[in-house]
């Protein structure tokens, strides 16, 4: 099974040649916006969970009526979970890229909405779920 992170990187690559970004912009942006590595603590993971619920869940929750999940479902075709919280291999760089640059109808999110620290927390939450999420794969 192809890890989710690889598919997200594939999505970034696709963005470089298709809808979503100008050529090369995705890689450059991802590098420029890679969050500073920090140890994920229980506190940051919990803060990330709450931030995820506030900012991400309305599009990325399970079930119909969530455009992010619907889109990833069509993109991944069941190869990996389309619900981000169920993924096993999300990458902090890719998360930061999509939050700051958007993708398709997903808009950009500014620092006044989600600051860099909060973005780190969201990444900590989404990248800390490997054991449980692995059961889905």
């Amino acid at each position: 099974m192809k890890p989710l992170v690889n598919l997200l990187v594939l999505a970034l690559g696709t963005a470089a040649v298709g809808p979503g970004a100008t050529a090369g912009a995705a890689d450059a942006a991802a590098q420029a916006q890679a969050p500073v590595a920090q140890a994920a603590t229980p506190a940051s993971i919990e803060a990330g969970r709450q931030l995820y619920q506030r900012w991400c869940l309305s599009c990325h929750a399970a079930g119909p009526g969530h455009p992010g999940t619907t889109a990833l479902d069509a993109l991944y075709k069941g190869a990996v979970p389309s619900v981000l919280e169920q993924g096993t291999s999300l990458d902090a760089t890719a998360i930061a890229y999509f939050v700051r640059n958007g993708r398709s109808t997903m808009p950009t999110f500014r620092k006044s909405e989600i600051d860099d620290r909060e973005l780190d927390d969201i990444a900590a939450y989404l990248t800390a779920r490997k054991p449980k999420a692995a059961q889905h794969e």
Binding site: P19, G20, S58, C59, P64, G65, H66, P67, T70, A71, L72, D73, A74, L75, S104, T105
Partner: peptide, 19 residues
């Protein structure tokens, strides 16, 4: 909710989503 923002986005019958 954000259900309406499925408009133009990728789904089972739309392989070429808008931006």
């Amino acid at each position: 909710n954000m259900a309406s923002f499925s408009l133009g986005s990728r789904n089972k019958f739309n392989a070429n989503p808008s931006d």
